[in-house]
């Protein structure tokens, strides 16, 4: 042990060992790291780790399990859910579409679609992007008329009455709509829900007169418990899921007969989505609900009837079970099995 080179030449293995370095006999060049690291041990694959648990824990933060989703909630078996469905027998026919076609300029968006929409059931419109499902939805409350280039043919009946014969404001009070992006107005929670009530009434009612209706709408939208402490809070400070439920509350405050939902959960996280899906289940008792969704699993969870659209055509319409499990058309089968989308 006279000089460094000889030692390093004769005992390279020993020089690399952590135990030797700790004694300090080799000078500064060979001082090992103060704490044992995993990398040091792996330099010597033959030598087993002296205290493996220490090598992992000291100096390295413990590995955390990251919770991506909430804990799994037990889902009722299909048979049980089916019985829930059957208990709410389809109600009266609210909306009827007869040979409805919509075009934007030269582009045909919806081709001669005929559909019944019943109270007490959820109809899901599914199909690939650009297949005309949102356009069809917007036809139901004549919102397509806001687009100057749009043209519609065919008839849409609400309770047997042609929607073209009534003022659009009255129609839209009966056929309410919730959009893809939550769009609460820049006012308080209360004013948001009271907005349509105030604007639709001939004489502006005061706050006290509106309060029961507003609270009822918030309760039915399953939002009241979260916001009841302060209804004058700005609506835009709510979370995304709460904003969307506020929009549903705003839409159902007028007690509409039909509720149109245009991908209401696509901007939301899984927990908020679950809350809104439960809400849709509740709401369909006194409403006809039409939901456009890209999410096939969601359509399967919430819908009673499913309509599959492709390139503007209505390809298939039936119960959820039939469309997803025994589709009649090949394209439906390919779509629900994920062959295209």
């Amino acid at each position: 042990m006279s000089t460094y080179p000889t030692i390093l030449d004769t005992q390279p293995e020993a020089a690399n060992e952590p135990g030797h370095g700790r004694e300090g006999s080799f000078g500064p060049t060979l001082v090992p790291p103060a704490r044992p690291l995993a990398s040091v041990s792996t330099l010597n694959p033959e030598q087993p780790l002296a205290r493996p648990e220490e090598t992992v824990t000291v100096g390295v933060p413990p590995v955390r399990t990251i919770v991506v989703d909430r804990a799994p909630v037990p889902v009722a078996p299909p048979a049980a859910r089916e019985s829930i469905r059957l208990s709410s027998a389809p109600g009266p026919e609210r909306l009827t579409l007869e040979q409805v076609s919509v075009s934007y300029g030269p582009k045909q968006a919806v081709n001669s679609v005929s559909l019944p929409i019943h109270q007490g059931e959820v109809l899901a419109l599914i199909g690939p992007s650009g297949c005309g499902k949102t356009t069809l939805l917007r036809t139901l409350n004549r919102l397509t008329e806001l687009t100057p280039s749009s043209a519609r043919s065919g008839r849409v009946l609400i309770d047997g009455e042609d929607v073209d014969g009534m003022p659009d404001t009255r129609l839209r009070a009966r056929v309410a709509m919730v959009f893809q992006q939550p769009n609460p107005f820049p006012m308080s929670i209360f004013d948001n829900v009271a907005f349509a009530l105030r604007e639709q009434s001939r004489k502006r009612p005061n706050r006290r007169a509106l309060e029961p209706q507003v609270i009822d709408a918030l309760k039915r939208a399953a939002l009241y418990d979260e916001v009841c402490d302060d209804l004058s809070r700005p609506a835009l400070r709510l979370s995304g899921g709460q904003q969307q439920r506020l929009c549903i509350a705003r839409a159902i405050a007028l007690r509409p007969e039909v509720l149109l939902l245009d991908e209401p959960c696509s901007a939301l996280d899984p927990i908020s989505t679950g809350v809104i899906e439960d809400l849709i289940h509740e709401l369909r008792r006194d409403l006809a609900v039409v939901i456009v969704t890209h999410n096939l699993a969601q359509a399967r969870r919430v819908a009673d009837k499913v309509a599959f659209m492709y390139m503007g055509d209505l390809i298939e319409y039936g119960t959820t079970q039939q469309v997803f499990e025994e589709p009649r058309a090949t394209r439906t089968r390919d779509y629900v099995q994920g062959a295209f989308g």
Partner: peptide, 15 residues
Amino acid sequence: VPNSWREGAAALGVH
């Protein structure tokens, strides 16, 4: 003003 507010108001049947 975001268009979604206009649409939202129109969808509530407001002039």
